[in-house]
Design a protein around this nucleic acid. Structure first.
Ligand SMILES: [Mn+2]
Ligand SMILES: [Mn+2]
Ligand SMILES: [Mn+2]
Ligand SMILES: [Mn+2]
Lengths: 221, 221
DNA sequence: ATGAGTGTTTAGCTTTGTCTAAAAATATTC
DNA sequence: GAATATTTTTAGACAAAGCTAAACACTCAT
């Protein structure tokens, strides 16, 4: 099993994330969207990843990640999320500042480093955005969660994760006082546009659009 | 001032280290030795670095680092050594295990990361090998030091740094109980081969060859 | 079932960083 | 000071990763 280059790791991780959300087949265009490269570049890379056995590919038919590809991707995800925990918990980064840096740090090659970092952080199970951290074997715990927009008036729960980890979205959440662990109760729902009025931590009324609420994940009750 | 690529940073740092020890002019071959690349590759890279203004070069005349080159090199050295401190002080790496990993970590681009890491580590002034850590402005404190082989019988002092940071040398020092801060007294000196008998921490007699003693740096008394 | 539109791949080019082999310049030795 | 040895540079190739433009394949609607 020859190892992956920096760019190959980024592609594989993108393919892994794309196959997670929904169907198994991942299209060339969706990969190029995700990574902001051109479809032609994706076609080239697909060939390399197929040769290394981390994906299967039939021409014009999209791409499917293999078992060994999932294993490799989970280790990259593990590193990414451990570094995010480090940045937030130890270096006082805000949760909207960690993604870019973790995107680089995840490629550092040193099993000892990751093992010790995990230990130093106290074997965290979730990253600052509520995403689960796989262990050395690739095992991770998925907490059941529901997008806020699917809750009904009167429903309540806690914010457990965010679907969108972009700086813009996280900064918005900071501004309105939403954070992982915050208590949420749905006060009112506008059927026309799917927007919600919610109560945060029993003290703050907030109006959120559907674009926002579908990116906030709530504990199942 | 356009920024440097990963490989350019490694070359510039090597040139900086080579100009530190001894003369200003650095030869193509010495760079290729240091980086284990071929002289032809060095010639290519020299052109790129000269265009970016970090070195001066006249054909067949060696290379001289510029003021702006020194500035850039010091920031890479700063990152390298801060990461080494992190690995040893926080992740319990041994001092012989840090170099390779720091060689990768030093290229992570994030001023905030380095500033916060420095703060997290308590603004260390020296790395695990006794080398000084430049601050954000490139300033650092050089402690006066003498190679152990230059001491005379009866002289004493403390180990303040090592000149060779290879794993093999550091593991040898571990084995014989030598470390940064250890007290040293020269008991006897063999003129024939320059080897020394020394007393470590007032309790351990040790025979060291000149190859070893010239790589151990002692406080000036 | 065919033609238009969309999605994917190929062809050909660029940049970065490496290499080998050969040429050119400098250094050393007799 | 000429011959030889060493060092450095150039020339040409290759792999990785990206791009644009053009060709090809699949899908869907008429
Ligand atoms: Mn990445
Ligand atoms: Mn995350
Ligand atoms: Mn390096
Ligand atoms: Mn060091």
């Amino acid at each position: 099993m020859k190892s992956l280059t920096y760019a190959e790791e980024n592609y594989l991780k993108a393919i892994y994330h794309l196959s997670e959300e929904g169907k198994k087949e991942v299209s060339t265009n969706s990969i190029s969207d995700e990574l902001k490269t051109k479809p032609a570049s994706v076609s080239d890379m697909i060939k390399k990843l197929a040769v290394k056995g981390v994906i299967n590919h039939k021409k014009y038919q999209g791409v499917r990640i293999t078992t060994s590809g999932i294993e490799a991707a989970l280790q990259i995800v593990r590193k990414h999320r451990l570094w995010e925990v480090f940045l937030v918990n130890k270096l006082n980064f805000n949760w909207d500042e960690v993604h870019e840096v973790a995107e680089e740090l995840e490629h550092i090659q040193s099993p000892l480093l990751i093992q010790r970092l995990d230990e130093f952080l106290g074997y965290p199970k979730y990253d600052p955005h509520g995403d689960p951290i796989p262990d050395e074997t690739g095992t991770y715990k998925l907490k059941p969660k529901t997008p806020l927009n699917e809750l009904q008036v009167g429903d309540s729960g806690q914010i457990i994760a965010v679907k969108d980890s972009s700086a813009a979205f996280l900064q918005y959440l900071d501004k309105v006082g939403a954070y992982i662990g915050a208590k949420i109760r749905v006060i009112d729902k506008v059927e026309f546009d799917g927007s919600l009025e919610i109560l945060v931590d029993n003290k703050k009324n907030l109006f959120v659009s559907k674009d926002v609420s579908k990116n906030i994940l709530i504990t199942n009750i």
